[in-house]
C-alpha cells in the first residue's frame, strides 16, 4: 500500500481563496523591510521604518496639502499637438495616448485652487508617471497660467515639481517653456505674491533650471534627487564615481541651494507657517 497515494484525486483549487496577501504588503526599496500597506498609507506614503519617502502622484499631493481634500481643478483640458510629429522607436503621439490612459490626465500636471489651512492658494502639481513628468508646451502653459492666476487673485502659488526636465519629444518648444515660466515668475515676484517651490523626487534638468529654483522659498522632501544634469551624465563627463548622497536634498541643503528639507508629514504646516510670514 502506497503511503502517499491520494485517495480522492486532485486537490480542488477552483474555490475562492480565503486569505489574500498580495497587495497588502510592500517592500521598502530603501531599507528592504516589509511594510503593511495600510501603515504606509497612514504615514503619508513614507516608510515607517526608515523614513524613505515613496513617490506619490499629483492627486495625492493635492490631497495632502489642501484642506479636506477639496479643490477646484483648472486648465486640465490642454492637450499637446505634437508639433514636431516626433517619432523615435515609438511615435510620441502614441506615448501620449498611453500616458493619458494610464494617468487619466491630459498631461503631466494638475492645476488646482484650494485652501491651505484656510488660506486660498494656487497649487500646480507635476505628475511624474506621465512621461517622466517631462515639460512640454502643455505643462509650460499650465504652470504659466497658474502663476498668472496667482498674480490676478493675489493667492500664493505653490508648485510641486517631480520631473526629469524638458520634454525631448517637443524639442526646442519645451526649452522655450523655461523662458516663458521664468518671465511669468518675474511678474509674480514684482506683484509680491508668495511663491513656494516644493522639490520632490526627482527634480532635474530644465525644471530645476527654471521655476523649481526660483521660489521665494525652495523646499524639498528628504532624499529627493535634485540637480541640473543627471548623475549618469556627470559620471560620464568627469569619469569618476559620484560621492554618496550627491544631488540628494540634504546635499543641496548643505551647499546652500535649498531653504529647508521638510518631512512630508510637516510639509503642509511648514508651508502654512511660511505663508503666514509672507502674506497678510
Amino acid at each position: 500500500m502506497a503511503w502517499f497515494k491520494r485517495e480522492s484525486g486532485e486537490l480542488d483549487t477552483s474555490g475562492e481563496k480565503k486569505v489574500r496577501t498580495e497587495g497588502l504588503w510592500v517592500k521598502c526599496e530603501h531599507c528592504r523591510q516589509i511594510i503593511w500597506k495600510k501603515d504606509l498609507e497612514d504615514n503619508f506614503q513614507v516608510c515607517p521604518k526608515c523614513d524613505k519617502h515613496f513617490r506619490i502622484d499629483a492627486r495625492a499631493r493635492l490631497a495632502q496639502l489642501l484642506d479636506d481634500n477639496q479643490y477646484e481643478i483648472f486648465d486640465s483640458n490642454l492637450v499637446s499637438t505634437d508639433p514636431l510629429k516626433f517619432v523615435d522607436l515609438k511615435a510620441y503621439s502614441s506615448r501620449l495616448k498611453t500616458a493619458q490612459t494610464d494617468t487619466g490626465l491630459k498631461d503631466a500636471i494638475i492645476n488646482a485652487r484650494g485652501k491651505l489651512n484656510g488660506r486660498p492658494v494656487i497649487v500646480s502639481a507635476m505628475e511624474y508617471s506621465f512621461i517622466g513628468g517631462s515639460m512640454g508646451a502643455v505643462v509650460g502653459e499650465a504652470i504659466t497660467r497658474a502663476i498668472e492666476q496667482g498674480i490676478e487673485s493675489k493667492a500664493p502659488v505653490i508648485i510641486i515639481s517631480a520631473s526629469g526636465g524638458a520634454r525631448m519629444m517637443e524639442g526646442v518648444i519645451s526649452l522655450m517653456q523655461l523662458a516663458k515660466i521664468s518671465a511669468a515668475l518675474a511678474r509674480l515676484d514684482e506683484a509680491k505674491v508668495p511663491y513656494i517651490s516644493v522639490l520632490t523626487d526627482p527634480t532635474t534638468g530644465g525644471v530645476t533650471a527654471s521655476f523649481a529654483m526660483l521660489g521665494d522659498l525652495n523646499i524639498a522632501e528628504p532624499g529627493a534627487l535634485i540637480g541640473f544634469a543627471g548623475p549618469r551624465v556627470i559620471e560620464q563627463t568627469i569619469r569618476q564615481k559620484l560621492p554618496q548622497g550627491f544631488q540628494r536634498s540634504e546635499f543641496l541643503l548643505e551647499h546652500g541651494m535649498l531653504d529647508a528639507v521638510v518631512h512630508r508629514k510637516q510639509l503642509k504646516s511648514y508651508i502654512a507657517r511660511a505663508l503666514n510670514f509672507m502674506a497678510a
Binding site: A183, L185, D189, A209, S210, G227, F228, A229, I234, T237
Partner: peptide, 22 residues
C-alpha cells in the same frame, strides 16, 4: 552648461534659472 560635480555643488540650475527670470 557644464555637467560637472562642482557645477552641481555650486548651483548650475539656480544660476541658469535666475538668469532666465532676471
Amino acid at each position: 552648461a557644464y555637467p560637472g560635480l562642482g557645477a552641481e555643488e555650486r548651483g548650475q540650475a539656480e544660476a541658469i534659472a535666475r538668469n532666465l527670470r532676471e
